[in-house]
């Protein structure tokens, strides 16, 4: 089972135009900022938003010509949309019933799905009696109970608190591993995407800006949005040999390449000095401190200068070097801690 999709959705002032290929058993995450068009893409796949152009097939069968209710899909919505007047069991049985299964049979199927998501004890509960995590699992069971060939998940973890999220994320991962069809997941959380997806497609302004495995995307971000998501400083410059020139600063890098190139490094790799350090003449620039904020156990310093950069330092270093906004410092990065790749 493979999804081949070319989706075009046009609205005043917005155009979504993307190609997606998802083999069966694979989870593809659509990642992107708000308004990038990822939910629109998912709704188009579900048949809830009409296509302005393009087409898509599942195992060669065209899907875009079918009405939403005829498509072999299962969808989990961001706020689950469990029918408030039906019990958890009847919510899950709703899909099988619509596919012509008898009431008894549908309920039996639903009961087994509730059991698989660990909620057999909540069969009679109404949605308002369920916690966020439980509602999410019922929604997943409801989507899977119709035996879809394409599973669509719209921000499936966004409505959960941090603690529940951890648990539900790993449960969802297990269910996705067992699911043999194609899965498209929409999220704006890089961690969800990294944990749940086999491949990422990053969408900005209705177009794909990067795609690849989570590891590839995390290691080689190609836009500022992706770099921020994965927590890297990213610059575009011109390479020649082991050097990349970015805004007048010469970065010495481990890789050898020529032409337009990206340089990426982690905020932790940036070292700050009050005065120009001796012995490390490379990868050095002078910057002004624009902001200081807590970041986990460390402190993140936002640097302004020829390039904007983030640097993570310890609390002790902040006191020692008196790193306050407005102060001028020297910043440097070791060549071994940078990563350069063709743009």
């Amino acid at each position: 089972m493979t999804l081949h999709a070319h989706l075009v959705v046009e609205r005043p002032g917005f155009r979504l135009d993307i190609d997606l290929d998802v083999p069966s058993g694979e989870v593809l995450a659509l990642l992107g900022p708000n308004g990038a068009g990822k939910s629109t893409a998912l709704r188009a796949l579900a048949g809830l938003t009409g296509l302005s152009g393009g087409r898509f097939t599942l195992d060669g069968d065209p899907l875009h010509t079918l009405a939403a209710e005829r498509r072999p899909i299962g969808m989990v919505f961001q706020d689950y949309l469990l029918f408030p007047h039906l019990s958890a069991l009847d919510n899950v049985a709703f899909g099988p019933r619509c596919h012509g299964v008898s009431k008894r049979e549908a309920r039996r199927t639903a009961a087994s799905w509730l059991e698989r998501v660990g909620l057999a004890a909540y069969a009679a509960a109404k949605p308002r009696q369920l916690s966020g995590g439980q509602a999410q699992r019922v929604a997943l069971a409801r989507a899977l109970a119709v035996r879809p060939r394409l599973l669509l998940l719209d921000e499936p973890l966004a409505a959960l608190d941090a603690h529940t999220r951890l648990d539900i994320r790993s449960r969802l991962r297990r269910h996705l591993d067992e699911f043999d069809g194609a899965t498209v997941l929409v999220t704006h959380d890089p961690l969800d995407a990294m944990v749940l997806a086999d491949r990422l497609v990053v969408i900005e302004n209705g177009a794909i800006v990067q795609h690849g495995t989570p590891a590839e995307v995390a290691r080689r971000p190609r836009t500022d949005y992706v770099a921020r998501l994965v927590g890297l400083n990213l610059y575009r410059g011109t390479a020649s040999g082991h050097q990349v020139k970015v805004e007048g600063i010469l970065f010495t890098v481990a890789e050898q390449l020529d032409g337009p190139a990206f340089v990426a490094f982690s905020p932790q790799a940036v070292a700050l000095y009050r005065t120009r350090p001796n012995g490390t003449p490379r990868n050095l620039w002078q910057a002004g401190i624009e902001g200081v904020e807590r970041h986990g156990d460390n402190v993140r310093i936002h640097l302004q200068g020829p390039i904007t950069a983030s640097a993570d330092v310890t609390t002790a270093a902040v006191a020692e070097l008196d790193l306050t906004p407005g102060r001028q410092v020297w910043a440097s990065v070791k060549a071994t801690e940078t990563h350069a790749y063709p743009a």
């Binding site: 579900a46 299962g74 949309l81 709703f94 619509c98 596919h99 409801r142 989507a143 119709v146 669509l152």
Partner: peptide, 15 residues
Amino acid sequence: ADLRFEEAAATLGAS
């Protein structure tokens, strides 16, 4: 009424 419940029903195969 929230139309999205009707959309959810449609994705489950309801006419």
